[in-house]
């Protein structure tokens, strides 16, 4: 069994030191050592999307990312979007339209949606659906989520 080690992470704009198992994934470290629990541990296989975070401005799975491979890379979790007005709009729209039920998938969806709006400010329905194809939701049936993202995009673009 590998022991523990210190990881130095660029986490939500802050240099953060954590002491964690040497074979920890980024998701393990976020949740178990940094008390950042927006990213969820769903499948731990990269399928469900609940652990999606941004690394160097690209959305990735925290559960498939080794903490030890994150040195020098900028990690941004949902908690790091407190001052991002677009994320605020997305969150409000998700609430208002009923895109949140149990909430387990929501953080991952928001990261994916935020990245979509950065790439394509007024995405078409099909584009939204394609972007969300790696985020599983077992409650809503997706319709409300797609509506929420479309309406947030409208508002932001206005």
């Amino acid at each position: 069994m590998p022991g523990k080690q210190v990881f130095t992470l660029d986490l939500n704009g802050r240099e953060t030191e954590v002491f964690a198992p040497a074979d920890a994934t980024l998701l393990d470290v976020l949740r178990d050592n940094c008390a950042l629990r927006a990213a969820k541990r769903g499948c731990n296989q990269g399928v469900c999307g609940a652990c999606t975070v941004m690394i160097d401005d690209v959305p990735v799975r925290a559960c498939l990312t080794m903490a030890g491979a994150c040195g020098g890379r900028a990690i941004r979790t949902l908690e790091g979007y407190g001052d991002d007005p677009v994320m605020g709009r997305l969150q409000e729209a998700m609430n208002a339209s009923g895109g949140v039920q149990c909430g387990f998938c929501t953080s991952g969806l928001l990261i994916t949606a935020r990245n979509l709006l950065a790439e394509s400010p007024r995405p078409a329905q099909a584009e939204i659906r394609s972007a969300l194809s790696g985020n599983l939701c077992r409650c809503t049936g997706y319709v409300r989520i797609v509506e929420a993202i479309a309406s947030a995009a409208e508002e932001v673009a206005r």
Binding site: D23, T25, N44, G46, C63, T65, M66
Partner: peptide, 20 residues
Amino acid sequence: GASLVAMKNARLIEASHFVS
């Protein structure tokens, strides 16, 4: 790491190190 770390998480593989 997309497959390798998934296999590690499922405890299918054991390794002393990952060489990234």
